[in-house]
Design a protein around this nucleic acid. Structure first.
Ligand SMILES: [Zn+2]
Ligand SMILES: [Zn+2]
Ligand SMILES: [Zn+2]
Ligand SMILES: [Zn+2]
Lengths: 149, 149
DNA sequence: TGACACCCTGTAGTCACTATAGGGTCAAGG
DNA sequence: CCTTGACCCTATAGTGACTACAGGGTGTCA
């Protein structure tokens, strides 16, 4: 299987597959006579694993750690379980933070009468008030509201 | 007021202030004889506005648009209000998405008996299953669960 | 022989900063 | 006058997880 077919099967771009190889998440595959990468089923499964984890918003570092567990199947699974638990914590923290932002945005919205001019709008006046620096979460990584195109 | 004092007052780094200037969010201030930036109250207010918006996870593009409204105080405030409304949508979308991830992670956690080896752990086996590509949200930008250090 | 789809490497761009390197300015103390 | 130290300046590169080229090579078909 060449890189294009692997990428299609797992729903990623070809460049992403090569990126995962550079990052050490996918092992270097065999090469054809013409220097093309040649993949096997095991590569496709590993790529699905990675994409599954990415769909859960894990970092590549978290995924690397999980893959290291998986590559050692006789070890107890405590470490892998702890990684999932920790990441669940990251997601929960981010949900809590975004819920606070949502409440603040809804409060902001209520401060606009709707027919006024910018100079009188409660929204913009409120936003000019200083803000106490947002508490920096320790291992937070579950990110932005805005996607990359 | 020199850049260090401005930065301290608004709780940002000096480099961030210079970055906002390069990005056109803060106007270029006057310079001292020794080429130091000299700021006034209006600059501090504008910086507070920017930080307030960033604390709500708006992008710099969204903030630029809001600042453009604010710089034109006789216009009706509809556009500014629509920007806030749209961003509230971004936050709500991201909360919904993260809630789905949270449910899936909790489901994963239940698949581990707790005393097994990695090879038998339901978590890792489940993660090896392919995943349908996550629906790409149109203007999503409210990002990751994982923070930058 | 040419067209075309696919593959290769290497580099640069994204976003919102952050962190250096390598210098200049300015007030106080010796 | 000279040094120390805090502050300032510009310019450049790094972060994460990709994405998009540029500039070439390979393989198959007509
Ligand atoms: Zn995580
Ligand atoms: Zn309004
Ligand atoms: Zn937004
Ligand atoms: Zn387990």
């Amino acid at each position: 299987m060449k890189i294009g077919e692997l990428a299609r099967r797992s729903g990623v771009k070809v460049e992403t597959v090569r990126y995962y190889e550079r990052e050490g998440l996918l092992p270097e595959p065999a090469r054809s006579e013409g220097n093309y990468r040649l993949y096997r089923e095991a590569h496709a499964e590993r790529l699905d694993f990675i994409r599954h984890c990415r769909a859960l918003d894990m970092t590549l570092d978290e995924i690397r750690a999980l893959l290291a567990c998986q590559d050692d199947p006789d070890q107890p699974c405590e470490e892998a379980d702890a990684l999932i638990e920790a990441h669940l914590g990251h997601v929960e923290q981010r949900i809590a933070q975004l819920s606070r932002l949502k409440a603040e945005l809804e409060g902001l919205r209520r401060r606009c009468a709707g027919q006024g001019k910018v100079g009188e709008c409660g929204i913009l006046n409120e936003l000019s008030q200083p803000v106490d620096p947002p508490a920096t979460l320790e291992h937070a990584h579950v990110g932005g509201v805005h996607p990359r195109r």
